[in-house]
């Protein structure tokens, strides 16, 4: 029985090895920069640009070929001394605003940027309503005459 388990484990490891290598290759490209500032710029940019085929990954973490092309292009442009803004503009001109992981504040993203504040204000309103209702006791209890009589009897202890 345990031999089977070992076999399955070994096969699993073998199956996953290529994936590991691919990851190491993708992330471990040795890159040389002229300055620390350039390295910083490259590291920041690859984490702020979206891989457009694998839409929930940045080009830093993605294994897709397009992502590696984009990394290479960002690297080359960084080495050429282009500013971070210029590189982002370059990508936006080709892939649209969608390529940025940090959407800029503009007319069509205004609602997106405002949504946390809107939700917060909405929450505050609900909270305020609830609190107001809770802190205000019913000052005038409404009882029928029968109930009043019953209460009076109880109070007297009949």
């Amino acid at each position: 029985m345990s031999r089977w388990v070992h076999l399955v484990l070994a096969m699993l490891v073998l199956a996953l090895l290529p994936a590991g290598f691919a990851l190491a290759l993708a992330l471990g490209e040795p890159l040389e920069f002229d300055s620390e500032a350039q390295r910083q710029q490259y590291e920041t940019l690859t984490r702020e640009l979206r891989c457009t085929v694998c839409q929930s990954e940045t080009i830093h973490e993605s294994n897709a070929e397009l992502a590696s092309d984009m990394r290479r292009r960002v690297y080359r442009m960084t080495r050429d001394g282009m500013s971070a803004d210029a590189i982002v503009d370059f990508m936006v001109a080709r892939y649209g605003d969608y390529v940025r992981y940090r959407p800029p504040l503009q007319a069509n993203t205004a609602l997106l940027w405002a949504s946390p504040f809107l939700l917060f204000v909405g929450g505050l309103l609900v909270w305020w309503q609830v609190m107001r209702r809770r802190s205000r006791p019913d000052d005038e209890p409404h009882f029928t005459d029968q109930e009043r009589a019953a209460l009076e009897r109880l109070r007297r202890g009949d």
């Binding site: 457009t52 085929v53 397009l66 092309d69 984009m70 292009r73 080709r94 892939y95 649209g96």
Partner: peptide, 9 residues
């Protein structure tokens, strides 16, 4: 050229 032409896939 793919990047310049904004090729996704």
């Amino acid at each position: 050229a793919g990047i310049d032409w904004g090729v996704y896939a």
